[in-house]
């Protein structure tokens, strides 16, 4: 009848599942924020708190055939694609038990077994990667879809624009998710993005571009499910623009002199977890007690992850040259 997706209502299990993942990301990031301040975590961390509905709304439509590429702000994408939080926390602490054996740190967490191509220190580094995996999926006929998350800063990078062009020319099963949190580091996207709406750029590449309320899980889930079904069905790429706010600075330690009041407003009025809880309890799909139980369970999980990470061994000199070369 229509070429749109036959949308199934999300079951209680699904709803609890996505809430659990969003809560896990929030708890993970709030905890890393606190732990980073103690000085025990090496390197830089860029936190995803506030943006959970994007990663989870998109990734809850994906399966084991699918791949994602992430950004320097990658913890949320990793968790949403199923990377183990214990291994992630160990990686952030630079421990041997980490997902990259402690050699990557926050900005390079990857788990190919989960289809997670990696957080990426290169701004605009993810989109070219997903053109590769999407092309592979298309040639092999796996039905897999590839998703690149990138920010408003990366939306101005040549790599991103070239990738959108290539994905359109090759009609790839690729989804470009622009996470527009308003600032590329400290530069406002209203100043630096010439088209103002990143989604507008889709027209130039001959693909649909849609603006989504990035604080609203249901809006993201619905838009992503349509885009992903379209890509799986051979319909080609889509650009989704999430508009929202990050709760922490660009990196931990950022004084954020470039903004005031936004975070407080977003946390109070727009927060994706609060809105999700209000909606599902209002409709009677979940009870507050269900959500509280998840919160308690996740608090224990992350507490355990931090304790395990702190107790885990650091890499040794002997580990220096392992994982460096790949045999084809």
């Amino acid at each position: 009848m229509t070429d749109t997706v036959e949308r199934k209502a999300l079951t209680k299990e699904h709803l609890l599942g996505v809430y659990r993942v969003m809560r896990t990301i929030r708890e993970f990031e709030e905890r890393v924020h606190a732990e980073f301040a103690t000085g025990d975590i090496p390197g830089f961390v860029h936190l995803y708190a506030g943006e959970e509905a994007s990663a989870v709304g998109v990734c809850s439509n994906l399966d084991e055939r699918d791949t994602i590429a992430s950004t320097h702000r990658g913890h949320g994408h990793c968790i949403a694609k199923g990377v183990d939080t214990g291994e992630m926390m160990a990686e952030i602490y630079g421990r041997r038990t980490g997902s990259c054996h402690g050699k990557g740190g926050s900005m390079h967490i990857a788990d190919l077994s989960k289809g997670m191509l990696g957080a990426n220190g290169i701004v605009g580094g993810g989109p070219p990667l997903i053109c590769g995996t999407a092309l592979a999926a298309k040639i092999k006929g796996t039905g897999g879809v590839s998703v690149a998350f990138f920010g408003d800063g990366a939306s101005n990078q040549g790599t991103t624009l070239e990738s959108m062009n290539l994905a359109s020319v090759w009609n790839l099963p690729a989804i470009f998710v622009a996470e527009n949190n308003g600032y590329a580091e400290s530069t406002a996207s209203t100043w630096s993005v010439s088209s103002d709406n990143i989604a507008d750029r889709a027209a130039g590449f001959g693909m649909p571009g849609v603006i989504v309320d990035g604080f609203d899980f249901f809006a993201v889930h619905e838009a992503a499910s349509e885009a992903i079904a379209r890509a799986r069905g051979g319909g080609g790429p889509t650009l989704l623009e999430m508009k929202f706010t990050r709760y922490f600075g660009h990196f931990e330690g950022d004084q954020q002199t470039y903004r005031a009041g936004e975070v407080e407003h977003a946390r109070a009025e727009l927060d994706c977890l609060k809105r999700f809880a209000a909606r599902v309890t209002e409709t009677g799909e979940l009870a507050q007690a269900d959500l509280d139980a998840v919160d308690a369970e996740i608090a224990v999980l992350i507490e355990g992850d931090v304790a395990a990470a702190k107790a885990a061994p650091l890499p040794t000199e002997a580990d220096l040259l392992t994982d460096v070369y790949v045999r084809y």
């Binding site: 507008d200 649909p208 849609v210 603006i211 889509t238």
Partner: peptide, 19 residues
């Protein structure tokens, strides 16, 4: 500024009205 940008660009072939 947001009119002409919703999901109908994706599920149908609704027009994009540029800024």
């Amino acid at each position: 500024p947001l009119s002409g940008r919703d999901i109908r660009r994706l599920v149908t072939q609704a027009s994009v009205f540029p800024t």
